[in-house]
Nucleic acid binder design. Structure first.
Lengths: 219, 219
DNA sequence: GATTTATGAATGAAGG
DNA sequence: CCTTCATTCATAAATC
């Protein structure tokens, strides 16, 4: 397993040597080496494992002494709350839960792109099973999602290439030519983080791993 | 607060651009787009957060009940985690150079107050002579500048209470920073899982950044 | 080098 | 739809 420090050092060290390649007439692109990918994979895998262990353990504890929710409540909540400070207490604007977001996102992807009143209603109904939500929320979400997605695409092309400056690293920007291609091989598995969150939420100890084979080397 | 999840959507939408490029005489190399990198970053971030919270919780539990049987053991002491995962995470953001800031500031003062897309382009063009910058950066800068300038004025009313000021605002928000009243005392007996999920949703930790050199300029 | 502050960026919502 | 605003988050910079 890669040591964290080492990894960091490596990263910092490589930051400057990370190459910006010129590919065809395309603009510069950022490149990750196999090693980097491998490192990432391992890192994620470790997290996944740890999470699983911890959750499992907690369940055990809770089971053999059902005070997890009650007596320990205040105990572990303090430290936890401390770090994230304000949160549940004060929120006036809607924020999608992980589950909701996932669903929305999926719909956005496959969806026709046309919210449609009927759809909105359906979606809202479905999403309300996973948390507070209103039709307006859904509507706004789609509006914003589309608008921003669109703008992103346009703007990606805009890279400032003023000459006479920045002597060292070229700032470079990723290209955005083939935005629409959908190989979707890279992240084949369900977004693990989200799934993780979901599972955690549902008290399901099974956390997804980042499959070593799938991510690391498929190319 | 949505941040942690947001990767999901971006991922599904953007994770598709991975390409295998032939670079020079090198063999195929893996290429990640900014979106992909961002996605990975967030994924790891989520795990890091979960782990962090879980470990914290575990410490609390262990401290009290000392359950040797279910201790995490080596897992817990894994170097990766031991060195506080979030430490190795970092992300860079654009920072205006003194010159740029000066120009921006001047424009803001005399400025019409209406950034306008065209203006933005011009400004960006000019500023890029003095350092890396994107239109988004400029846009954001003006947005923030205006918003904060506005808020400041509002808050000023609160400070002058000594004299017979005409309009005594009700208690003002005071400093934007301090207004964060710490909830701290709400007994949530959420289970471990819930807490973890909650935090994941509300807190977006940093992640190892893979491309330090350039601020993702979009827009 | 741990906290605090300042500020770039993200995003839900409102206006047109 | 597209633009703008308000609020919040995360982090670079500043401070102790």
């Amino acid at each position: 397993m890669v040591n964290a420090m080492e990894w960091q050092k490596q990263q910092q060290q490589n930051q400057n040597q990370q190459r910006n390649l010129i590919v065809g007439e395309m603009n510069y692109v950022k490149v990750m080496t196999d090693e980097q990918l491998e490192t990432l994979r391992k890192q994620i895998a470790v997290y996944a494992t740890i999470c699983e262990k911890l959750i499992e353990m907690h369940k055990t504890l809770s089971a053999q002494q059902d005070l997890a929710g009650v007596r320990l409540g205040s105990m572990y909540c303090d430290p936890l709350m401390a770090s994230s400070a304000h949160k549940i207490t004060s929120r006036q604007r809607w924020t999608p839960t992980p589950v909701q977001l996932q669903i929305l996102e999926r719909m956005f992807d496959q969806g026709t792109g046309t919210p449609s009143k009927e759809k909105i209603k359906e979606i809202t109904a479905e999403l309300s099973q996973h948390g507070q939500i209103s039709e307006t929320n859904v509507y706004n979400w789609f509006q914003n999602r589309r608008a921003r997605s669109k703008r992103k695409q346009q703007n990606v092309a805009a890279s400032n290439n003023t000459n006479a400056n920045t002597e060292s690293e070229v700032e470079t920007e990723v290209d955005s030519k083939d935005k629409q291609s959908k190989p979707e091989e890279f992240q084949s598995q369900e977004s693990l983080a989200n799934v993780a969150a979901q599972n955690v939420r549902l008290h399901n100890p099974d956390l997804p791993y980042l499959n070593p084979e799938s991510n690391k080397s498929d190319s």
